[in-house]
């Protein structure tokens, strides 16, 4: 029943992006860990068979306790995870990772890798849901830089953290650098960095999500997280997006 109605390829924007054009700094072998899902269906396999994601056709068999892969993808209500549960799990992820790395940079790299895989799944899910919300009419996938960044700033953040990011700015230093700001990042609000690791920002995970989403939309970028405290918001975090030259070239060609 759930395998019926494979949608025609052109109406399925979810798989139209390619993931093998990645020029990201994330290396494959490091990504052996399964990403841990923040929401219901983020832990789906990375390459589901084309017929499987059709949540509209698979509405039947919604018994509780069924396999997470069989749950309907378009059900959003009641699938949020409590922040406390997340905090405990993320704390474990960080301490697990910490015991397997030598340096702060390695630890951030590991968190970014996890976030990257999450981001790839978030993107697929969000595109599918937005297509379904418009009843498969006129499914959209942004291709210009600014709408893509706004998509990350608003939709991705809203899905992951419950609210859009607090700011999206272009860096004054370079045309190809953008900053996504969050005053009180919810994922890491319980984490207190010890003084000897002051370089570390556990928001590297969020940076990974952003990188994964951008890469999926064919906007390769190097994404890093930096804590920029202010008096009012000691945990204010800036996600710095340094776009690949290829993206800038493409934007120039596309023009206005």
């Amino acid at each position: 029943m759930s395998t019926s109605l494979p949608p025609p390829p052109q109406s399925n924007p979810m798989y139209s992006y390619s993931t093998n054009t990645s020029t990201s700094t994330i290396s494959g072998p490091g990504s052996h860990q399964r990403p841990l899902s923040m929401r219901d269906s983020m832990s789906r396999s990375p390459n589901p068979p084309p017929a499987a994601p059709n949540g509209a056709g698979a509405a039947g068999g919604g018994a509780a306790g069924q396999n997470i892969l069989d749950r309907p993808l378009n059900k959003t209500r009641g699938s949020e995870v409590a922040l406390a549960s997340w905090a405990f799990m993320f704390a474990e992820i960080v301490s697990y990772s910490q015991s397997r790395v030598d340096s702060v940079a390695d630890l951030e790299q590991r968190l970014t890798t996890l976030g990257y895989e999450t981001g790839q799944r978030v993107l697929g899910l969000l595109l599918l849901r937005s297509a379904q919300a418009s009843h498969m009419k006129d499914p959209r996938r942004e291709h210009r830089l600014i709408p893509i960044l706004q998509f990350v700033h608003t939709q991705v953040y809203k899905y992951c953290f419950g609210r859009p990011a607090d700011g999206l700015e272009r860096s004054v230093e370079g045309e190809d650098e953008y900053m996504i700001t969050m005053n009180q990042p919810p994922l890491t609000q319980n984490i207190s960095i010890p003084k000897d690791m002051s370089q570390l920002s556990c928001e590297a995970f969020t940076a990974g999500i952003v990188e994964g989403v951008l890469d999926g939309l064919d906007v390769p970028a190097r994404v890093t997280a930096h804590t920029v405290s202010t008096d009012q918001y000691p945990q204010r975090t800036v996600i710095l997006v340094k776009l690949d030259q290829k993206v800038m070239d493409r934007e120039t060609v596309l023009g206005k």
Binding site: V94, N190, I191, M197
Partner: peptide, 17 residues
Amino acid sequence: MKNPFHTPEMPINSAQF
């Protein structure tokens, strides 16, 4: 708690807490 840099049963030195 919920801080990965804190060892259980040890003194709490978290500025944030």
